[in-house]
Simulated scan of single mutants.
Amino acid sequence: MKIAFYGSSLLSSYWNGAATYYRGILRALAERGYEITFFEPDAFDRQEHRDIDPPAWARSVVYPATPDGLARVLAEAGGADVVVKANGVGVFDRELLEGVLHEARPDALVIYWDVDAAATLDEMRQQPDHPVRQALPQLDLVFTYGGGPQVVAAYREFGARQCVPIYNALDVSTHHPVPPDPRFASDLAFLANRLPDREKRVEEFFLRTAAALPEKKFLIGGNGWADKAMPENVAAIGHVGTGSHNAFNCTPRAVLNVARDSMAAIGFSPATRVFEAAGAGACLITDSWEGIEMFLTPDEEVLVARDGKDVAEHLKGLTQERAGAIGRNAMARVRAEHTYDLRAKEVDSVLKRLREARREVVA
């Protein structure tokens, strides 16, 4: 089957945390025989901060963020068997969603793929005319990258025919152990862009911990932190490209995951960095969220913290030996149960089932 995928960016992770999720899922689908074209706008300086060249497993189309550029790429939707509009493209989101519904063939599957479902659902509750809310009756399916039963139920209540979570996972071809890199030497490292609904939790779980442990070294990577007031033992290093993620995860004593407010409230939404860190054999400390046991076992494969005080307590007693054991256990778990090859198998099964149902209706 041919897939036309309209998303934020496949080539760049710059202000685009979904990049590795797209790459992992779509590469694995390509290995299952899907022909994929990924359409992304030239916007937000992402093309100046590419992490990868156009991959062999997908046709990459970068279009001008103009009405003419939009029209040209929407015209290609008619050649696909599956047409996907992802959330958070950043430009022409409403027009893209309306456009794929208009341009897709009658026999094509049209899918909304939500990589920030909690935020989208909040918007739909507040806006009766929200474009996704209006489009749901016409969409064949909603995929989300997490959220568990709460997100599925909420989407169904808004009128989605079907909602299937396809969780973040590990791409074993790109995330794996590497030698440590002195640039990332620290006791605790954290990697995420600065966003309003994440900042207070970062202050609690990361900056409060750093202030309580002045003798330890802390590292924060990601866009937007340069002008944030921080303790002296915290180094803000800016954007870290995906090519350096393995070293960023392998070098520190431990790495931290902090969910955004909305994701922590819903649960069942492990971020990409959880699997990237585990796949690199890192010792991961994460804030507490519902459903974590589905992915990693607390105290054996991950350390769980309720607040900054818990993070500090974990660090005080964390030997290199224990950190290494936790990292190895986590790596074994995600390689066995949480790879993008397994996620793509789920997607493939859903798509084939929908296509077969469509054929039966036509017949």
Rank of each mutant, 00 (worst) to 15 (best):
M1T: 09
I3D: 00
G7T: 09
S9P: 08
S9C: 13
S12A: 14
A19P: 00
T20A: 15
Y21W: 06
Y22D: 00
I25E: 02
L26S: 07
A28E: 06
G33F: 05
E35V: 07
T37A: 13
T37S: 15
E40D: 10
F44C: 04
D45I: 02
R46H: 11
E48P: 02
E48T: 10
H49N: 15
H49W: 06
I52G: 00
P54A: 14
P55A: 12
P55H: 04
W57R: 02
A58M: 01
S60L: 11
V61R: 11
Y63W: 15
A65F: 12
P67D: 13
D68L: 13
L74M: 11
E76Y: 01
G78H: 09
N87K: 09
G90H: 07
F92P: 01
F92K: 01
D93H: 11
E95G: 07
P106H: 05
A108L: 01
A119C: 11
L121M: 12
D122H: 09
E123C: 09
Q127H: 15
A135I: 15
P137I: 07
P137F: 13
D140F: 03
V142T: 14
G146Y: 01
G147F: 08
G147I: 03
Y155H: 12
E157R: 14
A160W: 04
R161Q: 15
Q162R: 15
I166W: 10
D171S: 15
T174V: 13
P177G: 11
V178N: 00
P179Q: 08
P180L: 06
F184V: 03
D187H: 15
F190K: 02
L191S: 02
A192S: 14
D197L: 09
E199T: 10
K200F: 09
F206N: 02
A211E: 13
P214S: 09
K217P: 02
G221R: 00
M230S: 08
P231W: 06
A236T: 04
I237E: 01
G238R: 05
H239R: 05
S244L: 13
A247S: 13
A247R: 05
F248Y: 12
N249E: 10
N249I: 04
V255F: 04
A259S: 14
R260H: 12
D261K: 14
S262M: 11
M263L: 14
I266C: 03
I266M: 06
P270A: 11
T272E: 11
A278I: 03
A278Y: 04
G279E: 10
A280D: 01
D287K: 07
S288F: 11
E290T: 15
I292K: 04
F295P: 00
T297W: 05
P298Q: 06
E300A: 09
R306I: 02
R306W: 10
V311N: 00
A312V: 08
E313C: 06
H314E: 03
H314R: 08
G317S: 08
L318E: 09
Q320F: 08
R322C: 07
A323C: 09
A325H: 08
R328Y: 06
M331L: 10
A332S: 13
R335F: 06
A336G: 10
E337G: 13
D341K: 12
R343M: 03
E346C: 10
L351C: 07
K352F: 07
E356R: 13
R358L: 15
V361E: 12
V362G: 12
A363Y: 05
